[in-house]
Design a protein around this nucleic acid. Structure first.
Lengths: 353, 353
DNA sequence: CTGTTAGCGCATTCAA
DNA sequence: TTGAATGCGCTAACAG
């Protein structure tokens, strides 16, 4: 029995590199508490002692035990991110920037992708809360009240990104999708387009997409035109969706002269398919989109698109959370700017009516 | 004092949704130990009692405290991933699959991107180890011994991905970069190409890139040709690198008739730049690459490329780690297959010599 | 500035 | 099967 205990202990030592605060304390000939202080608030401890302790830490290769630290201090120094997807350069860029900024502040990031499935998102959030995250970043604001209640119950800071606060009362960092879409639509209308199609991913469970559609609508009504709802097409995200929708809408009895794509892959698909079909872009149909990912300026014709501050969103969200975590009561940053980048894929309609 | 203590306790309650095992135990009228059993090994507890306990858990909305659980059980149910980058669909796809598979097995994933910087990678690994991860996934096998020692000291399972074990003794899940490159190069040589350029990211700190170059070399020597080292170009990853290298090598006194790109973005850059320069692909120069990301089949000319099992890598790596975590001694999966996908960007050289 | 003391919330013995 | 007891490794309050 005693043997067994010793064995288990040996094993546990192995697991934890055999080192605890106490070991370090013994070597440095101080109390465990002092070692703890050296690691967490070095300035509160005598210089000579501190050096002795840190030397011991170094020599032993001591590494604090995260869970123990979390349990005792009531913070894990981990933050969670749930994104609709992470295998694209849109959210990838934001995640990258977020992670980098968080790492600089000593935080570790936990990530999960919900595949645009609200239920999956809820599960991920629950699991993360359970893991003891100190803060949370989510995309958009549309989710069940119960989910927000879970978050509030834990009383941790969180941000929603990719939108501005708008009506919702959630801290948000992002840009105004409605305005951005309105701006783009106005530009097209200004070019003379009167029949504009809107290519979108599924609108339910995606407040950003709905915002953009809303912007296009407002642009029309405020310009004194009516937006034709039959020109709203929906497909799952991806190039193939764009190809399909282009084919669908060019086959219409009265086809659009311009297309606004709610997400950039649709625009690529539309442009590729138009090329395949021998339809000139922008000669016969204009194509514009949102996001300005790396491909936009590379393809031919170069894509007219709204640059969205993907990277900045990740960075600002991290900053906001770090501030909150530090006890500051900073409000989230102001809405970030978008910019309409006019390139080659848009032009006046060929046969103005 | 007593008041203060009570206050602190109240505060802590708030932070943790006010619920501990003990609370549940009290409500269900059992001991805390029983509640713990119900949650972890339900089959070892009386059915009636179990139901009572689970009902209480449900009703109270009890959520176990991750850090406490980790501390007591010596496992965090978190696994770490350090990737060179996450804002591209290559690693993004793998990460996505990895995360999904891990989530299904009840694990949470921590992610960090090293930006191809070895030192940053080391830091991230250290931090993750400290966070108490139960397992770790890394890309490639080339890193300081000290890093591997850190991992071994913790005695946790890990995998390296994107390569096959090869000489190194590390568990690996991936494909044979040398063979894949050799295959591609053989195909080009078979087409009649004798001057083949290799577009690469930086070769130091990137064993995959070196493997691919090695494959191209082997292909040449085994076919009885010599590979011209002056046709190895290096640039940071990205389309711009591809554009730049295309310009550079077409300006050579004796330019190549074909290009093998170590990563796909280079190929896109090369193709776009060739179009801009009025150089025909594949009429005047052939272009081929690795990865087969979504764009490969969309651009014009459609890209000849080696399909690499990005998604499968993430999935298999997760499976392997899960098995190891479950105590199974499963060896990593066999090398995954790659497939040469011949499309439109390659053809015999225009002026065979 | 330092050491002593007392838990953090849970899993896991062990004896019943 | 169950409950009581113990401690995981650390931080934080307190007295010195």
């Amino acid at each position: 029995m005693c043997l067994f205990t010793r064995l288990m202990k040996a094993l546990s030592k192995l697991r934890h590199a055999g080192l605890t605060l106490e070991d370090v304390a013994r070597i440095a000939d101080v109390s465990p508490a002092t070692v703890s202080r050296c690691l967490n608030r070095p300035e509160t401890v005598n210089v000579k002692k501190r050096e002795r302790v840190l030397a011991a830490v170094e020599r032993l290769g001591y590494v604090p035990h995260g869970a123990a630290r979390a349990l005792a201090s009531r913070q894990s120094r981990m933050v969670g991110v749930v994104f609709p997807s992470i295998d694209n350069s849109l959210f990838g860029a934001a995640l990258d920037a977020f992670q980098r900024t968080m790492a600089d502040a000593g935080y570790t990031v936990i990530v999960a992708s919900s595949a645009y499935d609200p239920e999956l998102e809820t599960q991920h959030i629950r699991r993360m809360l359970q893991s003891g995250i100190d803060a949370l970043m989510l995309v958009g604001t549309e989710r069940p009240d119960t989910t927000y209640r879970m978050i509030h119950a834990r009383n941790i800071p969180y941000v929603t990104v990719w939108r501005t606060p708008g009506e919702s009362s959630h801290p948000s960092i992002g840009f105004d999708n409605v305005q951005a879409a309105k701006h783009l639509s106005n530009y097209l209308i200004g070019l003379g387009h009167r029949r504009i199609a809107f290519f979108s991913g599924h609108l339910e469970h995606n407040d950003r997409a709905r915002d953009r559609l809303e912007g296009v609508r407002q642009s029309h009504t405020q310009s004194g035109f009516t937006f034709d709802d039959s020109l709203i097409l929906q497909r799952p995200f991806g190039v193939d969706g764009g190809r399909h929708m282009l084919r669908a809408c060019t086959a219409l009895p009265s086809p659009p002269t311009a297309i606004i794509c709610g997400a950039e892959p649709f625009a690529y698909g539309a442009i590729f398919e138009a090329a395949a079909l021998g339809i000139g872009v922008p000669a016969e149909i204009s194509v514009a989109a949102f996001d300005d990912t790396w491909l936009a300026a590379q393809i031919s014709p170069k894509l007219t698109t709204v640059r969205t501050p993907n990277l900045e969103i990740g960075e600002e969200a991290a900053r906001y959370l770090i501030a909150r975590l530090a006890g500051e009561n900073a409000p989230p940053a102001l809405p970030l700017d978008t910019e309409l980048i006019i390139r080659e894929s848009t032009a006046p309609p060929s046969q103005p009516r």
